[in-house]
Design a protein around this nucleic acid. Structure first.
Length: 618
DNA sequence: ACGGATTATACG
DNA sequence: TCGTATAAT
């Protein structure tokens, strides 16, 4: 499964940062009384004290471990504080941790390329920053070395003595070091500064690894915890890896690592050196073979991606043992909750980050009632994602039914569902440039009276028909773009004002209208899609009066032109005949959205609009 | 009958 | 492309 990537020849400076027992720190910040106390974060307190998902270092001293139950933890550490994960819609709600994680990313992304690797981990490519420091204020000629940096752990540097910090300082400042080590030293200083900054601004401590590639940085970031950093000079790599148990390497913690042990007798990474690349390829295929060969030598060309946001959003829940779901209505009820949360999260992603998700996937685990415990897997199913809670719920249920159908094959014995999850993926940025056609669509803040477009240049689009119920306004965009207030703000999501305005705009003849198909056959995969609309901040209008109309608070129709309101217009289908009547420029744009689909809907042979943000087009 | 809930990636 | 499997946290 792992794949080797070509090697950059220039030396890089890569850091991996990892928040220490992150969920615990988040809870400790919320309740400072927990600081310095043995503490763990637990979810679902009802059964055996719930499961631990994060454990403070004080509690670890007592032998408390992740994957213990709350009860066991209490047993080995009677004084432990157990904090529950927030629950909403009867499931764990991780949003507080997600947004706390983004706080950290926001700080770390200021220095070089930054990749959000997980909710509490980040990779940085500090090559440029390190080079800059080396040329402008090299440590060797600097009077003062940032103190936190002198607390670094340098692999290979004997570090037990009382003069440890002096040794480290000396290493960081060595004038006779090679270029690579000098870069690493700069990297270590930069990371130390960043960690202090993170602490100051978020109160979170983190640990870090600094090396020439991701693999090594990650490998050592957890070596000295908490709140410490470790540097890997290339001269130390060989010896370090030689004695390292294979299972400690990322990607070798599972079956592949076990296979190395059991089938090849490889216990340490050093043992791997006894195999030629060809031999490893014989066992594990070309890609994995090469990857293993390079890994054994500390070689990894994997780049730090420039990505601050997750690539997908998922919500799930398990229903262990007696809690397994056995009826369609139970499934529906849970699916509805999961979809509600998912809908909120993608809506927030749209508002805050101007991103749209294209695919909805449903996963489930099921077992058959009596009879031979079939090992059959419940198939995962996916379909184009339509925005709007109701639509997501509807589609998810259809996906479930379709999966269930496959699951039984021909004979329906009873089933029970032990886990359910829905995921939104294939997320793309909304192009920020001028979105020509969108100018013909009025946003929530444009009253019918204020016209965005010049009527004379506005084509007559009357043949299109807007279906109001397809209009799905976003919730307020105002703030919340740290999603700390996500749940709160996304609660007020239904808004009638928009459809009203769309109708008004429709009357005025300055709006693009779409033809809708009947809801028919889902199985034939109607190719639905949505259109993102945004009034890029021109025109100021009558917000206050509008805001009064819909009873919900929190709806932000007016103002905030800097952000621009974003909402979703769902489109079921478009009549190709009508497209032909539009101005050529618009036609071309629309053609761009259209991509052929194997499972095109029964109607109107040919294409359906699939997505405005097709990945294939720039 | 899974420590949960999320995320990511390679393979076919 | 979709669905599956593996892995990490």
């Amino acid at each position: 499964m792992p794949v080797a990537r070509p090697e950059p020849q220039e030396p890089r400076v890569i850091a991996h940062l990892d928040l220490d027992c992150f969920y615990v720190q988040v809870e400790q910040r919320r309740n400072p009384a927990l600081r310095g106390q043995p503490t763990a974060v637990v979810q679902y307190n009802d059964w055996k004290g719930g499961g631990l998902i994060a454990v403070s270092y004080e509690a670890r001293k007592f032998g408390v471990k992740r994957s213990m139950r709350g009860d066991e933890a209490k047993h080995v550490c009677p004084g432990i504080n157990l904090v529950q994960v927030p629950v909403s819609r009867d499931k764990a709600d991780l949003n507080v941790y997600r947004s706390a994680g983004s706080e950290v990313v926001a700080i770390l992304s200021t220095k070089g390329k930054c990749e959000r690797a997980s909710i509490d981990e980040v990779y940085l490519d500090l090559t440029d920053a390190a080079k800059e420091m080396l040329s402008e204020s090299p440590p060797e000629s600097s009077e003062f070395i940032f103190e936190e940096a002198t607390k670094s752990n340098i692999l290979d540097l004997t570090s037990d003595a009382s003069d440890r910090e002096e040794n480290v300082k000396a290493w960081l400042c060595r004038a006779d070091a090679d270029y690579q080590d000098k870069l690493l030293a700069c990297g270590a200083i930069i990371v130390a500064q960043l960690r202090v900054k993170v602490l100051e601004e978020t109160q979170f401590t983190c640990s870090a690894g600094i090396a020439h590639n991701k693999m090594l940085a990650k490998l050592v970031s957890g070596m000295h915890k908490p709140a410490q950093q470790t540097v890997v000079p290339s001269s130390s790599v060989q010896d370090f890896l030689a004695s390292l148990p294979v299972k400690k390497m990322k990607q070798l913690g599972g079956k592949l690592g076990s296979s190395l042990q059991d089938d090849l007798g490889v216990e340490t990474v050093g043992d791997l050196l006894g195999f030629t690349e060809e031999k490893l390829q014989e066992y594990y295929g070309v890609n994995t073979g090469t990857w293993l060969w390079k890994t054994a030598r500390g070689i990894s060309g994997e780049e730090v991606e420039d990505r601050l946001l997750p690539k997908s959003h998922g919500c799930g829940k398990t229903f262990p043992g007696p809690k397994a779901l056995k009826t369609n209505t139970a499934v529906k009820s849970w699916l509805d909750k999961l979809c509600e949360e998912l809908s909120e999260r993608i809506q927030s992603d749209l508002n805050c980050n101007k991103r749209v998700a294209q695919t909805l996937t449903l996963h489930a685990r099921a077992s058959k009632e009596n009879e031979c415990n079939s090992v059959k897997k419940f198939p995962s199913k996916s379909c184009p994602l339509r925005y709007g809670t109701g639509k997501i719920q509807e589609d998810a249920m259809k996906l479930f039914e379709s999966g269930l159908h496959d699951f039984w094959g021909y004979r329906n014995t009873g089933w029970s569902i032990t886990s359910l999850s829905v995921t939104a993926s294939k997320i793309f940025d909304i192009p920020s440039g001028t979105n020509s056609i969108l100018r013909y669509i009025k946003g929530p803040s444009s009253g019918a009276s204020s016209t965005i477009v010049d009527p004379s240049s506005t084509p007559d689009l009357t043949p299109f028909v807007v279906h109001e119920e397809q209009c799905q306004p976003s919730s307020s965009i105002k703030e919340d773009c740290d999603n700390s207030s996500l749940a709160k703000q996304c609660g007020a999501t239904e808004e009638k004002g928009v459809s009203k305005k769309l109708s008004k705009a429709q009357e005025s003849g300055s709006i693009l209208k779409f033809l809708s198909q009947s809801q028919s056959a889902f199985h034939e995969k109607r190719n639905f899609d949505g259109l993102i609309c945004s009034n890029q901040g021109h025109e100021s209008s009558s917000g206050a009066s509008e805001a009064g109309q819909h009873g919900k608070t929190n709806i932000n129709t007016a103002g905030d032109h800097s952000a621009g309101n974003t909402w979703m217009l769902n489109v079921e289908d478009i009549d190709p005949d009508v497209v032909g009547e539009l101005p050529l420029e618009i036609q071309r744009e629309i053609q761009g959205w259209i991509r052929p689909s194997k499972h095109a809907s029964t109607k109107k042979r040919g294409s359906t609009i699939s997505s405005y943000f097709s990945p294939s087009r720039r």
